[in-house]
């Protein structure tokens, strides 16, 4: 009797959608995301700029017109091209050792963007694992995770990073690891609470009911629902990591000169800044534009994947 009723109802529904001329299929979530992405100017502008910068950084040796370390003392402090005495040979001029500033900026981008991306990625892996464990298992595991987060939060991050770089030296790897240590907690905090919400939903209970292993539940039921959060935090943290790397290098406890990073360029330009301001304006504006583009892209990804999280 009951089955009869349901099947009739289902048949009626199909018939209605077949015959109803005004019936429109509701858009799928992917189509909705596509529409939001298409209309999001910030995402496209920021994303395009970030993509161009990433490509330039990856292909730095091919694109850079000069060797970033090659000194030419006959061509010291050539001003950039928009200055009267500037030349197109050195569009951004040269520094006090006659090194081509554009080439140093491009190679510096490789290091700054590389450190920013890798450190945010490692932080994402560590922080996500901790956050998911805390949120999924709750109880003591959660208490340990929150305790670690609290301890990390109460440490003065910049001072600790400076000390760690002073102890272990300012190499690429050390900076990546130090910054990863500085940034993992945001993922842990965010993913912990989202995991708690997801864990309480019916599809997780269903997976548990059919006897799925914890590993399977975490990896294939919970993780896919967290990925957009991870990507949003990741983009914003890349911007922050780039700023902190520049800060450390600027203070002399980051990438060691003559290797260029954007922070190193500002630090080197500082002694000349009263006479040749372009030496600090060029790398500074570059850091600013890249950070803003990454932020626009990150905000865009959040608006597109989870419009309800917008503020």
């Amino acid at each position: 009797m009951a089955t009869d009723q349901t099947s009739t109802a289902a048949a009626a529904a199909t018939a209605a959608s077949d015959t109803d001329p005004f019936h429109v299929e509701p858009p799928t979530p992917w189509q909705l995301m596509g529409r939001r992405a298409g209309a999001h100017m910030g995402f496209w502008i920021g994303g395009t700029f970030v993509l161009i910068c990433a490509l330039v950084a990856i292909f730095a040796p091919v694109i850079a017109p000069f060797d970033p370390l090659a000194q030419d003392l006959t061509r010291r402090l050539v001003p950039p091209v928009w200055d009267e005495k500037g030349t197109w040979t050195h569009p951004f001029g040269t520094d006090k050792f006659g090194r081509d500033y554009l080439s140093r900026l491009i190679h510096g981008g490789q290091i700054s963007l590389g450190i920013g991306f890798l450190s945010a990625l490692i932080a994402a892996v560590i922080g996500s694992i901790l956050g998911m464990m805390g949120g999924y298992f709750g109880g003591r595991v959660d208490a340990v995770v929150m305790y670690l987060v609290n301890a990390k939060l109460s440490l003065p991050g910049l001072l600790v990073s400076l000390a760690l770089v002073a102890v272990f030296g300012g190499s690429f790897i050390v900076l990546v690891l130090v910054l990863a240590f500085l940034f993992w907690d945001n993922y842990a905090v965010a993913l912990r609470s989202v995991t708690m919400q997801i864990r309480a939903q019916d599809f997780v209970a269903a997976a548990e009911a059919i006897g799925a292993s914890r590993r399977r539940i975490i990896l294939s039921e919970i993780l896919p629902n967290l990925m957009n959060q991870v990507i949003v935090i990741l983009t914003l943290e890349i911007a922050l990591a780039i700023l902190i790397e520049a800060t450390l290098s600027f203070l002399g406890l980051g990438i060691k000169p003559p290797t260029p990073s954007w922070g190193v360029l500002v630090a080197e330009g500082r002694e000349q800044m009263f006479f040749n301001p372009y030496l600090i304006t060029i790398p500074g504006v570059t850091i600013f534009l890249v950070a803003i583009a990454i932020n626009m892209m990150g905000d865009g990804i959040r608006d597109i994947t989870a419009p309800e999280g917008r503020n």
């Binding site: 911007a239 700023l243 520049a246 800060t247 600027f250 203070l251 500002v266 500082r270 800044m273 009263f274 301001p277 600090i280 304006t281 500074g284 850091i287 600013f288 950070a291 803003i292 932020n295 626009m296 905000d299």
Partner: peptide, 22 residues
């Protein structure tokens, strides 16, 4: 707001020195 978050602190300081100080 986004600009404020994206400007490197040390660089903004140097710019203020150049502009208001020098």
């Amino acid at each position: 707001a986004v600009s404020g978050q994206a400007i490197p602190n040390f660089w903004l300081g140097l710019m203020f020195i150049l502009l208001f100080g020098v």
